[in-house]
Simulated scan of single mutants.
Amino acid sequence: MTRDTMGRIDPALIRLYDLPPAPAGVIEMLAAIEAPCELVSDALDDLGFNGVIAGSVLRPTILGSSIVGPAITLRNRLLDIDPFEAARGGHLNRQADFEAHNLTRPGDILVIEGGQEISNLGGISATMAKRQGGLGAVIDGGIRDVRHSRSIGYPIWCNDLTPRTGRWRQETVEINGPVTIRGVAVNPGDIVCADDSGICIIPLYLAEEVAARVATRIVTDQASLDFLASGRPLSEFPRPDPVMYQE
Rank of each mutant, 00 (worst) to 15 (best):
I156M: 06
R77K: 13
F84R: 13
I181M: 04
E99H: 01
P106S: 08
N102A: 14
T73Q: 09
N76A: 07
G141F: 07
L161I: 15
T165V: 10
I81G: 01
G134R: 09
I112D: 06
I109P: 01
P203A: 04
L161N: 07
Q170P: 02
I72F: 02
G115E: 03
G177N: 06
D196L: 07
D108V: 13
L206P: 01
N159T: 07
P203G: 02
A71C: 09
P83Q: 03
L92W: 01
D160H: 15
N159I: 11
G177T: 05
E113K: 14
N187T: 06
H91N: 08
I118F: 11
S149L: 15
P70Y: 05
D108Q: 11
G142I: 09
T172V: 05
H91S: 10
Y154M: 14
L135E: 08
A129S: 14
T104M: 15
I202F: 02
L74I: 10
D195P: 06
G142E: 07
I175W: 00
N176R: 11
A86N: 01
C200I: 01
V184I: 14
A137F: 08
I181T: 05
T127L: 13
I175F: 00
S125T: 15
E113I: 07
T162M: 06
E85Y: 11
L79A: 06
T104K: 09
N159L: 12
S197Y: 07
T180Y: 09
A207R: 07
R75P: 00
G114Q: 08
G183C: 07
I72P: 02
L78M: 10
P163L: 09
L121Y: 06
A137R: 08
P203L: 02
H91D: 04
G141K: 09
G115V: 15
I181G: 03
I112C: 11
I191K: 10
G198K: 07
L110C: 11
A100H: 05
R164C: 00
P188A: 10
E171I: 08
H101C: 14
D82N: 15
L74V: 12
E99C: 03
I175D: 01
P188T: 08
Q170A: 15
D196R: 05
E171S: 14
H101R: 13
A87H: 05
V111T: 12
Y205A: 10
C193W: 03
G122A: 11
Q95K: 12
F84L: 14
G153I: 03
H101Q: 12
V179C: 07
V138I: 15
N187D: 09
G198W: 02
L135R: 14
N187E: 12
N187V: 01
I72K: 06
D195V: 08
R88I: 10
R150N: 13
I143R: 02
G134F: 06
A71W: 06
T162F: 05
G89K: 10
P203D: 01
I81H: 10
L204F: 02
T127D: 07
S197F: 10
R88A: 12
P83V: 01
V138G: 07
I199K: 03
P188G: 09
G107Q: 10
S197K: 13
R94K: 13
T172Q: 05
L121N: 08
P178S: 09
T127E: 08
Q95D: 00
I139T: 04
P106F: 05
A87K: 11
I124F: 11
Q170C: 12
K130Q: 10
G115Y: 02
S149T: 14
W168D: 08
L92R: 15
V192W: 06
E174Q: 15
I181C: 04
G107L: 11
